[in-house]
Design a protein around this nucleic acid. Sequence first.
DNA 1: CAATCCTGATTTTTT
DNA 2: ATCAGGATTG
Length: 717
Amino acid sequence: MEENSKLNPEQQMAVEIIDGPILIIAGAGSGKTRVVTFRIANLLNKGVHASQILGLTFTNKAATEMKERVLHLTQSAVLICTFHSLGAKILRESIHHLGYTSNFTIYDDDDTDKLLKMCLNDAVGAESKEKLKELKTLISSTKNSLQESPIEGGGRVEGQLFSKIYFQYQAKLKEYNAVDYDDLLALPVKLFREYPSLLEYYQQRWSHLLIDEYQDTNHLQYTLVNYLVSKSRNLCVVGDPDQSIYSWRGANINNILNFENDYPGAKVIRLDQNYRSRSNILDAANHLIARNPNRFEKHLWSARGPGEKIKLFRADNDKMEASFVADRILAYQRQCDLPLSQMVVFYRTNAQSRVFEDCLLQRRIPYVIVGGISFYHRREIKDILAWLRMALSGNDYVSFARTINLPKRGLGDATLDKIRLAASHEQCGILEYCEKLLSKEIVQVPVKLTAKQREGLEEYVQIIHQLQKVSQETTLAALVTAAIDYTRYWTYLEEDKETMVDRKENLNALVSKAAEWEQSTSEPSLTGFLEELSLKSSLDEADTNAERLSLMTIHNGKGLEFDAAFLVGMEEDLFPHINSRDDEEGVEEERRLCYVGMTRAKEYLYLSHAVTRTIWGVTRTQRPSRFLREIPTEYIEKLGAPAPYNYATAVQRKVEKPQPIVSEDFSNGDLVFHQEFGVGCVRQKYDGSAGLTYKVFFSKSNSEKNLVAEFANLARL
DNA sequence: CAATCCTGATTTTTT
DNA sequence: ATCAGGATTG
C-alpha cells in the first residue's frame, strides 16, 4: 500500500487512540507496519516527545525497518529496538547494582554451551548430550519463571543435580562478567524488583510503549513490559494469535489472549482486511486455521478478487518435487515476468533445502538460503571476537579457553582446567591469575607448567596486553586488524588450505564491518561493537532485493510476502512434524505454521508433496499431510505431471557436463559455472599467494570466493 | 597433548 | 548422507 493512501476505519482507530492499553489484532497482511508507523507519527503530532516513545520488536531487521519508516515519515529518530537490546541498554546503565560491571560480555548459544559443559563436568565428571540439552531448557525455564531458585524438572535430570548446576552456571557467568540471552531480560526485571527508584526512572523515561509480534512474547518479556507500563498504562501491543509459532522457545500465546484481563479497560481493535493475498488463497488459509479449537475467532477478508486456485502437486519422489518447483519458477520468470525475488520455496526443516539446491544449480537459477549459519557465527569471526573480549575484560574464561591454544601453544584441556580452578580459588580473573603465575608472584594454588607451556602462556598474555594498549589509542577497524595480526591468525588459517581463502575473506569483511559500524555510531566503543554482533542473527544479513529466489523454513518467512510461494513437503510426519504428532497443542502450532506459510503468497500458491522421500539415506513412503485435506477442494486445482519446460531442459543438458576449464582468460564480468558453487560472476583477477587467482561472486552462497586458476574448475557460460 | 577413527544424531532457533 | 563431538590411539 502507498504510504499516503487512506487508512481504513479500524486502522484509523488504531492510530488515533493514543492513551491507555490497546490491543491490535493484526491479521496477516492487514497493513500492520503501516498502522504502527502512523501511530508513532500521531503520538509525535500530539506532543509526545520522540525520546519518550519505545518500540519493541523481536528481530533487528524488524526494528531497523520500522525505525527507518518512522524516520522517513516524521523525520524523528525514535528508539525502536529488540527486547534483548533494550535489556542490554538497561544493563549497561544499571547492572553495577547487581555486582557486574557495565562492560559485561553477552554469551551466545555457543558460549553458554561451553560454560554449561564445564559445569556439568565439574558436577558429575561426565556429560551426556541429552542431559545438556535438557539442562539448557531447564535453565531457561527457571529464568523465565522469574525464580531465583531452580525449578523442578520432569525429565532425566535429577532435581539436586540441576539445582547444583544451575547455581554453578549462574555464579560462573557472574565471575566471568557475562550474561546469557535470558539474563538480558531477567536481570532488568530483577533490577526493577529490587530497586524501585530505578524502575521509576525507566517508567518516566518511556511513557509510550509499542510492542510488535506480541503473540510471541515469553513470560520474561511480558513481565519486563508490565513493569515499564504499570504507571503510565500507555501500552500498545500488535499481534496475531494465529501466527504464534514459537511456543517451543517459550513464547506464551496467553500473553495476547489474556491482554484484556491483564490490562482492564483495554481497547481491542481488529484489522480484518487483508491487502496482500487473493481471496482463494486467503479463504483457504482461513478454513485451515478454523480447525484449531482454541483461538480468538476472526475472519480475514480480501478485496483483491479470487485470483487463481491453489495448485496442488503430487510428485513421485522428492527429486521430482524439486524439479517441478524449479520448472514452475523458470516458467513464471520467463513467461510472466515475475522476478525471482518475488518467489519463495518454504519447507518445514532445513534438511529439505538440499534437493532444491541441487536442482536450482543445474538450472542455473540464482537462489539464496535465508537463515542458516550466520556470518557472525563462523569460527574465524568468533575466534577474533574472543580475542577482543579478552582484551576488554580479562575475566571471560570462555573466551580465554577459545583463544589460548590458537595457534597451538601446548595448553590443552587438562592444563586449562587446572588453571581455571586455580584462578577460581585465587578469586581473581583468569588473565590476572595468569599474570601472577608468570611473574612468580605468590599464588595459593600454582599450576605447574612445562617450559613450552610457560613460553606459550607468556606469549598469550603479551598479545592481550598489546591489544589492550591498542584498544586505547586507535580505531575499531585498526583494532580488529591488530587482533588478526598480533595473534598470527593468518598463519594459523594457512594450516587448512581448503578453507583458508574463504576465512580470510570473512575476516576482511569483519574489518570493513568494524569501520562501517564506527562511522554510523555516535559513540563507537569496543563494547558496543561486540554487543551489536552478539545480538545479530543470520536473518539480519539477508538482502531480499537481489534478483534471487529465496529458500527458507516457514519460521523464517514470518513477516515476509511474495507473489508466488511454494510450500513443499506437505507430508505427514514432516509437516505436521513427527515430534508434534501426538500432542494436540503441537499439531495446532503446526497448523498455525502452515497458515503463516500460505498467507505469505500474494498471487500464486503451490502446495506439493512427494509419495516417496529419501531421508538420511533411507527411502520412505510418505502420506499426504492432513492439512491438505483440511483445505476445501473448491480452492484447489490438482496438477498432473507437468510438461517440463523446454528451456529448462535445454539449459540442464548444457550444464550437466560443464567443461572444467583450466583457464587464465576469464576477465572481470564473465559469467561462469562451478560444479559446487554454481553460477558466479568474475569480479577480479589477481596474483595471489598460491598463484593466479580469480575472485568470483557466487549467488548461491551470496559470497565471494577466491579460486586459484589452476584448480578453478570453471566453465564459461 | 594431538591426531585419528568412530559413533550417533539429524524440528522449528526472532535473541 | 553428513557432520560434529567422543573415545581411543600415538
